[in-house]
Write a protein that binds this DNA or RNA. Structure first.
Lengths: 210, 210
DNA sequence: GTCTATATGTTGATAGAC
DNA sequence: GTCTATCAACATATAGAC
């Protein structure tokens, strides 16, 4: 697939770096070419325009963020187990690529609704169709199991918020808490355990003492 | 202060709109001028360069996001009350300006650590000095009150994550959950109550039944 | 497929009249 | 303070040789 000896893939990898950090408007085709070890002209040979190259990168990033959701949340195990798996998935993905969420959300905010619609059509992403089913499943589990009453959309939202947002705050946290790279890593790593525990405490009813 | 009959303030207001949505690189000086009802040249008359104008806007946005934290979390009342007030503050601010967090975090990611350092020096923001005191206060309250053991930084992080991140997901949520503007508003408004409740359940120890 | 050279269009910024 | 006119500096994109 993404072979580094393949020119097209080297360009894509370089474009990812550049777009992730600078966004569509801030990215420079020359910088991408240089990082990929080829001339600017090659970028246009493989991907007609900057916009096209950008959307290729965006679709892949977008997929990384939302494609795994249905598989994880509709998969095996109890509700809390699946929630923990989703949280762990984001933790692992974003540990490797912490710039991902800011890139995606900034693109969505800057390029307007058109981008999202185009991407949902082009890339076959099952989430939009799955989501109502998913929410109904969670709603049913919440009302059966020993859980507090909650809007299933809010459960979903709280899980994602606590799992993803701290990575976006990385530059923030490092400055405010006087952290080095290793400190941040240690801090964020402990959340791999504490986030699911926190969610469990918030969602589960306390054991009956009678 | 920000008087609409004042040219400088009209420019600042227009710049905010433009920078919030498009970021530094994507924003156009011509667009800002047009929105402010003045010529491009005026922007340079009041704010020498695009970069200067941007940093003016960024500092104000950054302050809106973090300046109120010490006052709220060091203020009156119990821990849960102050946490609820912080959550409510973000809720109200971001209801009016949902683009704010993506703008701030994108700027931080794109412009690198230099921006943050410059801003913390220029704008007198007390948070960095206050934060250790704040964390120690929370730590003490957690160990005294009927709360679960937790890293106070994580408490802080979870509060902010659940309060802020959903606003960043606005375009996402509207598409995925098939919401109109009014639907989103209703959904996010209910969180003004449910988020503090969720946090309380996660943090407080269940009442003793004996 | 890959490069050099160049066309073409924007954009931030300034000079200077009013 | 505000405008018009203009400059200089990129940056994307293409043409064409190898």
């Amino acid at each position: 697939m993404s072979d580094d000896s393949n020119t097209k893939d080297r360009i894509l990898a370089a474009a990812r770096q550049e777009f992730y950090q600078k966004g569509l408007a801030g990215a420079r085709m020359a910088a991408i070419g240089e990082a990929a070890g080829v001339n600017k002209a090659m970028l246009h040979y493989y991907f007609r325009t900057k916009q096209d190259l950008f959307e290729e990168v965006f679709i892949s990033a977008f997929g990384q963020v939302i494609a795994p959701i249905p598989g994880i949340l509709m998969g095996e195990g109890g509700l809390m187990d699946r929630i923990s798996r989703l949280s762990a998935y984001y933790h692992d993905t974003l540990t490797q690529t912490p710039e991902l969420p800011v890139f995606v959300m900034n693109a969505l905010q800057a390029e307007g609704g058109g981008l999202l619609k185009r991407v949902l059509e082009r890339a076959q992403i099952p989430l939009p169709q799955m989501l109502p089913v998913l929410m109904e499943k969670i709603r049913a589990e919440l009302s059966e199991g020993p859980y507090r009453e909650m809007d299933p959309r809010e459960v979903f939202l709280n899980v994602v918020s606590m799992s993803v947002f701290p990575f976006m705050l990385k530059p923030f946290l490092m400055t405010l808490f006087s952290m080095e790279e290793a400190d941040f890593r240690a801090f964020i790593d402990q959340r791999r355990e504490t986030v699911p525990a926190f969610l469990r405490q918030a969602l589960e009813l306390p054991a009956d003492h009678s």
